[in-house]
Amino acid sequence: MFELLFSLSSIGILVWLLMIVLPTWRVTRLLAELKIFPIYLSILYIVGIITVILKNGFGFMQYFSSAAGVIRLLSEPNFALLVWIHLLCFDLFVGHSIYRENLEYRYIPLPLQSIILFLTLMFGPLGLLTYVVLRNASNRKRT
């Protein structure tokens, strides 16, 4: 079941490609505005986490309090796949936010936006931090 959820989550790469390669295309803008893919990934995650809870209860939450506990959880293949979907969902939501804000205010040029979106896709927080730093630098130049 979790491998199916993982496979179904792979379609999220489409919106990343659109935001990176075709950022001004009408379809890309519409998909980003509607947030269809983050919502889709959220639904997949919810199906997975409900399955975990129904099967095992809330006992897994006890492992969140230590590094060893988190490692133990992530060593469980089904839980690791579920965490992956969680990461995909949040990284895509951040990517959408960067994309939409920059298209509206043009803090950075579109080619640089594409690089930052790639960084966000591959390294989440690195892409977000890069965007925030460049956006703030751009704001200082404008004032």
Rank of each mutant, 00 (worst) to 15 (best):
S65L: 13
R29T: 02
L82S: 07
R106N: 09
L34C: 04
T28G: 03
Y99D: 05
L117D: 04
T24M: 07
Y45C: 04
L74P: 03
F90G: 00
L92T: 03
I49L: 10
G59A: 12
P38L: 00
I85S: 09
F37L: 08
I53L: 14
G59T: 10
L112N: 03
H86L: 11
I71K: 13
A80V: 08
E104T: 06
L54K: 15
E104L: 13
F90L: 13
N78V: 11
L92C: 05
L92V: 06
L41R: 05
Q113W: 01
V27F: 10
V70M: 15
N56Q: 14
T28S: 02
L81C: 08
T28Q: 05
L54R: 15
Q62N: 15
L121A: 02
L92Y: 02
I53H: 08
G69L: 13
L119H: 01
I20C: 02
I115M: 11
L30N: 02
F123M: 15
L31Q: 03
P77K: 10
F58G: 15
I36V: 12
L81T: 00
L103D: 04
V21P: 00
I108M: 03
L103S: 03
L41K: 02
Y105K: 10
F58P: 06
G124F: 04
G48T: 12
L44Q: 05
I46K: 06
R72V: 09
I49Q: 08
W25I: 04
V21N: 07
L22P: 06
D91S: 07
I46N: 10
I49W: 11
I39A: 06
I85D: 01
H86E: 08
S97K: 12
L112A: 03
V94N: 00
L119Y: 00
L41V: 10
V94Y: 09
W84T: 12
Q62L: 13
P23Q: 02
Y45P: 00
V70F: 12
Y63H: 15
P125T: 14
Y40R: 00
G69F: 08
Y99P: 01
I115R: 01
I49P: 10
R26D: 08
T51F: 15
L119P: 07
L117K: 07
L82T: 09
W25P: 01
W25V: 06
P111H: 07
T51G: 13
K35E: 11
I20W: 05
I36K: 06
I85Y: 07
L31M: 09
C89T: 12
C89L: 12
Y99K: 01
T120Y: 05
L73N: 08
I39Y: 04
P111E: 03
I98C: 00
I108K: 06
F93N: 07
L112H: 02
N56E: 15
L119K: 01
R72Q: 14
N56F: 15
I36R: 03
G48V: 03
D91I: 01
Q62R: 14
I20F: 07
S65N: 14
H86A: 10
E104P: 08
L117E: 08
P125M: 14
L126K: 05
V70E: 12
Y99I: 00
I49A: 12
W25G: 02
L112P: 05
T120S: 03
V83F: 13
N78F: 07
L73V: 09
E33W: 11
F123S: 11
L44Y: 12
I50R: 11
N78K: 09
A68P: 10
L117P: 03
I98K: 00
N56T: 13
G124M: 04
Y63W: 14
I108H: 07
L74W: 10
Y105M: 07
L121V: 01
